[in-house]
Design a binder for these strands. Structure first.
Lengths: 345, 345
DNA sequence: CCTGGCTACTGAACCGTTAACGTTCGGTGC
DNA sequence: GCACCGAACGTTAACGGTTCAGTAGCCAGG
């Protein structure tokens, strides 16, 4: 029976024909994929764990790029991609336990995410994209520290010393507003932590007291939240000459707010992003471009590469660091001097 | 054992604790999802079949909307969404056969798609979005004919009689260029067929000879292909006063081409789309808005509603028609009169 | 004629879980 | 003190396919 479908060479064409015909007559719909999976120990799909509501992934262009890259890699290998629902707040660990997949790709979850724990307990290979860093687990991501450092140096070279920062959520609990230094350093999102730390280090190196630099956090990652964060920051610190945003989305929001306030970018205010999403490109944003699609592709390949694994564990846990590129657009320029501020350029 | 995990109420807390502890000591990773699926006959996931390469779905905002809606519905029900790779060209029916899912959502495939056949042979419920229409299978979609008729009437009212049409692929085989009427009527994509037919009917009703109306087809569905289609059409028929596009993406391409030619829209040329995607909204495109997200949501709900099914078949196969809305933007206006063309408005 | 080897096919064990069923036992009502 | 009942727990048979050992049948060589 099984042979008739899967090994035409093992039996005579005549018998195969007879078997298949009888099967058809009996209304047999072909081998059951689940039973097959049980026996062969291959589900033919990889799971994608996102910390966000599923629908969010389709809003954020960076997440979309990752998804696209992963889908591409999986398509090549002929396996499906299963979106595992794991919204924040409502912990649904069962979704992780119940997913019939051969491996997981975990995208950008906080250090202490319980879903991640659940994934790691499953006896299947796992690749983490971006964050967090877990010992003995493959990871794909850019060198956030180095990338942010190069961006910071660009701003420093331009002459900015009086900056403000807009960042994404730092913990799983909803919180918005100014972030004291301690919270920055204890953030559960490794990527945000690294970017903030890189900024702090670079600016302290040129004599800026980081504790005076305003950092505003937003839990939701949307253009509107970026705008409101920019507003909050500019209201309290109208003197800043540059807004450094830890994502392009936030930067686009900042641009929106700047335009609402009739601030010239970059003449009155420099704004920078991070990611290099198409929308940012269109706005000619100064940002760090990272190969989002490549991240997904790379993660998929790593997960599916049969040579790399014996049993459940990676042969040799790898951390793949992807190249980033500083992209200088039209949203960054030297700050106005005091005179320029009063008399115009 | 099973009870310890799934029915805490069936045994004493003491025993449960002991069982769980021993399990942990033995390194038992929890019930195997595949074996569970085999036994319970529930995979905890629904498959999404797209006729396009998986990565394409992440490019087309309309497809993305559908995906988002479906993900939303599935998230509510706690089931995953599995993207089934079924790129065009390379037929990979096995991907359909091997997918361990409780049902399929099929999005916009041609009438004669072999993957669709494979899906229908599987003993699981299926919902088709948009196309094709298959007897006894649930379908969710707008009334394309009525929607396109209302758009046509808008153009007719404005005074357009000399139009050109840009449409998406009409068959599975790659083909680009002008489309003779016969090919329009034999298109394997039901939606395109319906939209073209509605246009033809409406314009013939006001005396336009449809066989003189140029229709240009593009296999790929991108802004650039829309632009090249517009170029091809305008080169051959510079006199048209309106370009009707069967999708917003194509219309955005047409806008791009118009701007390249320094044609004023809508003064020199009216351009209309179909779908109502955010990008079109931003361009203030005249279009037909259809609730793409709702399509996905609706399909998911239909598929997962336990009351609607006995065994594999739908109790009462349903065709859900979603409302559309004519959205008049700033890309449509009355055509210039002959004098205006020579002397300006 | 017997044996050895080859091919074509058959049967049974196994994958890990769940759900149904059977057993035991302590408690309650008469 | 006996009969009955329900809760708690142990046992077992599928679920449907794959795989592998084993058998039957055949032909060739000794």
């Amino acid at each position: 029976m099984s042979n008739a479908y899967n090994r035409p060479d093992q039996l005579s064409p005549e018998l195969r024909r007879r078997v298949l015909e009888t099967a058809r007559k009996l209304g047999y719909p072909g081998p059951d994929p689940v039973a097959r999976s049980l026996r062969t120990r291959k589900a033919g799909a990889v799971g994608l764990l996102l910390t966000e509501a599923l629908s969010y992934a389709f809003r954020d262009p960076a997440a979309l790029g990752v998804l696209e890259g992963l889908a591409l890699a999986c398509e090549d290998a002929g396996v499906g991609v299963q979106l595992v629902p794991a919204g924040p707040g409502k912990e649904n660990l069962d979704a992780v336990h119940r997913a019939g997949v051969d491996g997981f790709v975990v995208y950008s979850v906080p250090d202490d995410d319980p879903h991640l724990q659940a994934v790691l307990q499953r006896p299947v290979p796992t690749v983490i994209i971006d964050q967090p860093v877990v010992p003995d687990v493959d990871r794909v991501g850019p060198d956030d520290k180095a990338a942010m450092t190069s961006l910071a140096e660009h701003l420093i070279e331009l002459g900015h010393r009086d900056i403000g920062v807009l960042c994404m959520r730092l913990t799983r609990e909803r919180r918005n507003g100014f972030v004291p230094r301690e919270r920055q350093e204890n953030a559960n999102y490794h990527v945000q932590r690294a970017r903030l730390a890189a900024l702090a280090e670079a600016f302290e190196a040129v004599g800026v007291d980081w504790s005076t630099v305003p950092v505003v956090e937003r839990f939701e990652h949307t253009i509107d939240d970026g705008a409101s964060a920019a507003a909050q920051l500019l209201d309290a610190h109208p003197h800043v000459t540059a807004l450094v945003c830890t994502s392009d989305i936030l930067a686009l929001g900042a641009l929106k707010e700047a335009s609402r306030r009739r601030l010239q970018v970059p003449a009155d205010l420099t704004i920078t992003g991070f990611d290099g999403v198409p929308e940012g490109e269109r706005a000619d944003l100064t940002t760090v471009r990272q190969p989002v699609r490549e991240k997904g592709r790379c993660a998929g390949k790593l997960l599916l590469d049969p040579g790399r694994r014996v049993g459940r564990a990676a042969v040799d846990p790898e951390v793949i660091t992807l190249d980033t590129e500083l992209r200088i657009g039209r949203t960054s320029a030297p700050p106005r001097t005091a005179e320029q501020r009063w008399f115009g350029p």
